[in-house]
Amino acid sequence: MIFFQLFYTFLIIGAFTFGGGYSMIALIQGEVVGHWGWMTAQEFTDLLAVSQMTPGPVGINTATYAGYTAVVNAGYPAWAGVCGSLLASLAVIIIPVTLVMLVGSWLLSHKEEPRVATLMKVVRLAVVGLIAAAALGLVGVESFGSVGLNKQFIVSVAIFAAVFIFSWRYKKSPILLIVASGLVGLIVYSI
């Protein structure tokens, strides 16, 4: 049963992801954490940290990890989790891959079609909001600790501000920022 739900959910996620890995994160968060409760919010944040550090497309990495964790969290053994992860990764690419093969060449020659362009413009605007919502959804006790003048909250806000500035303003690589924040966490919370 969970395999069927997993397949169907990731099929839909793949079909409705516009604008790359980050918007897929928003969709996976909505379905896997919000709708189905296959993962906790903290597991999801950990997954994002892991999938930013390993090679490959973020969308595939997130689907693979979410597929495995959903099945194992439902009480199945590890090998079933492996099947779940492969199923989720396959489901997430089926519709886009079919679309690319069917209409890719047609679109390459009609890329200036005004109706398609207007539609995509509005979708792209909504996707900006989608990703903002994903970030807002991650703001919570799991990521920052409880609000107040305690060590974890202050350190977390400082890390957030520093990573935001280095990522947005100075375009530093995510892997560098993740490794640095992990080191900061290790040092600060050990003393």
């Binding site: 950990d46 990703i131 991650l138 890390i159 640095a180 924040s181 966490g185 600060v188 919370y189």
Partner: peptide, 26 residues
């Protein structure tokens, strides 16, 4: 401890592209 440091960083890494994408989407 490492993950306590990582989690706020991940939130920032998702928040930052919002502004870049907002510019690209005009």
């Amino acid at each position: 401890r490492i993950f306590m440091g990582l989690r706020p960083a991940v939130v920032a890494l998702i928040a930052a592209p919002v502004f870049t994408m907002a510019r690209n989407a005009k």
